[in-house]
Computed example of a mutant assay.
Amino acid sequence: MWGEISDRSKFAYESIGTFVPEATTFLMAGKHLPYLLCILNSPMSEWFFSKVGTTTGVGTVRWKKFTIQELIIPIVSPVDEQFFEEQVQNYIDHSIDTQSFTSSVNKRIYSIVGLSDEEISFAENYYPTML
Rank of each mutant, 00 (worst) to 15 (best):
W47H: 12
Y35C: 08
W2D: 03
E85H: 04
N90T: 00
I96Y: 05
P128R: 12
S111E: 15
N90D: 13
T55L: 10
R8V: 10
P43G: 10
Y13M: 06
K64Y: 03
Y126G: 06
E14V: 00
A29P: 00
F49H: 13
V58M: 09
S45G: 01
S15G: 12
D97K: 06
F66A: 06
Y35P: 01
N106M: 01
G59M: 10
Q89T: 10
K51Q: 15
L40V: 02
G30H: 08
E119Q: 15
W2L: 04
A29F: 14
T55E: 12
K107Y: 00
I73N: 10
I109W: 05
I5D: 09
Q69W: 01
L71V: 11
F26T: 09
Q87E: 14
G114M: 06
Q89P: 00
S42Y: 08
N41E: 07
E86C: 09
W47L: 15
N41H: 06
F101H: 02
E46W: 12
I68R: 01
N106K: 00
L37F: 15
M130L: 13
I112Y: 04
V58H: 08
A23S: 12
P74F: 11
K10T: 10
I109T: 10
G30L: 04
S95G: 05
M130P: 02
E14L: 06
R8A: 10
S77L: 10
W2E: 01
H32R: 13
S50K: 07
G17M: 05
H32W: 04
S100E: 14
L36V: 03
I16A: 10
T102V: 05
R62G: 02
F26L: 05
E70P: 00
Q99T: 11
A23G: 05
L27P: 00
E14K: 01
N125R: 09
S116A: 07
D117G: 05
A12M: 09
R108I: 05
E22F: 14
F19R: 07
Y110W: 15
P74S: 11
H94F: 13
D93L: 12
F84R: 02
E124F: 09
E119T: 03
N125P: 04
A123Y: 09
L37V: 05
E4S: 08
V105G: 01
S6P: 01
S9V: 03
E81G: 03
V52A: 08
G3H: 12
S9D: 07
I5Q: 08
P34G: 05
T56C: 14
K10E: 14
E118I: 11
A23N: 11
M1P: 02
L115Y: 14
D93M: 04
I16R: 08
S111V: 00
N90P: 00
P74K: 11
I73V: 15
E86N: 15
S77E: 12
